[in-house]
Computed example of a mutant assay.
Amino acid sequence: MAETASTNADMKARAASGAQEGLWLRAEQQSGGVGRLGRKWESPKGNLYCSTLVVTQANDPAPSSLSFVAALAVYETIEYYLPHDHMLLKWPNDILVSGSKICGILLESTADNVVVGIGVNVAVAPAVAERTVTSLHEEGCDRDVTAAIMLENLAKNFEDRLKTWRHSGLSEILSAWQQRAHPKGTRLSRVDEKGIGVEGEYAGLSDDGALRLRKADGALIEIHAGDIHVG
């Protein structure tokens, strides 16, 4: 579609009408894109704005852990197009290229469905308050690579990672995620929705995907939500 308010909102409507797992929607532009914590997601033409649908099953891991599935799929897709390897995953589903944010992932649940919304800066890096951002083209990606081309690769990678999550379990997904994340001992800070902060060293993930942070006094804490900053 050329323009919509939000591909996630469109997908939720499709899910309510009986849409099947594996459907993807892409828009050239969004007028009401939303990121984490209700932040506005700037959506200029030239970038990838898409959503897909996962229908949860009885034996699936926790639906929230699909954030790691999506992060891996997007990481592998971006990696395919970039001429360098200055990439890392930041908990839970941010991808940093040359230290800058390049994508956004938002999960929304509705009934037994999870809508996975993904935005990737392909051609343009819109200004984001208090964050440095980049795009695939700025990082040296071939200018012939478009959002439509990228989605073909992303859909396949997501399908593969979803099968792993569903049939091999979350542990395999988390292991793959950690191989692409900042190394253990990296200094991280977290600010929660109330503005309360904590700092420490990255100490891996728990079995359910919580971020483990070792504080200066040696205490090991687990973080389940909040904005994470590297350094």
Rank of each mutant, 00 (worst) to 15 (best):
M150R: 04
N153T: 15
E152Y: 02
R161I: 04
R187K: 15
A148K: 14
T146K: 11
R190E: 07
A147N: 01
R166D: 00
A181M: 05
A176F: 01
I173W: 03
A181T: 03
N153A: 08
A148D: 12
T164C: 02
H182S: 13
D207E: 15
S189C: 08
P183E: 02
S168L: 13
S189A: 14
D208L: 12
S168G: 02
K163G: 01
Y202P: 10
L154Y: 01
A155M: 05
R190N: 12
V198A: 14
P183K: 03
L211C: 09
L154Q: 01
L205V: 14
I149K: 08
W177V: 09
K163Y: 01
G197W: 01
K184I: 07
R161E: 03
L151V: 09
K156W: 06
D208Q: 14
A147V: 06
R187A: 13
I196E: 15
F158M: 10
R187Y: 11
L213Q: 06
L154E: 02
L205R: 03
Q179H: 11
E172T: 12
K163R: 15
G197K: 12
G169E: 00
G197Q: 10
R212S: 04
G204S: 03
S189P: 04
W165C: 02
L211P: 01
T146H: 08
L162G: 07
E201L: 13
L205F: 11
R187E: 09
Y202E: 02
L205T: 11
R161C: 02
M150Y: 06
L213D: 02
D192A: 10
G195L: 09
W177A: 03
R187C: 09
R166E: 00
H182T: 13
K194C: 09
R166A: 06
D160C: 01
S206N: 10
I173E: 07
E172G: 04
Q179S: 14
A203G: 01
G195W: 06
Q179I: 08
T146Y: 08
A176W: 03
Q178E: 15
Q178L: 14
A176R: 06
R166F: 00
K156P: 09
A210I: 10
A176Y: 00
A155P: 13
G185A: 04
M150K: 00
A210M: 13
R166G: 01
G185R: 05
G204E: 04
G197L: 04
W165H: 00
S171K: 11
D208H: 11
D207T: 14
L170Q: 07
E159S: 11
L151H: 01
V145E: 03
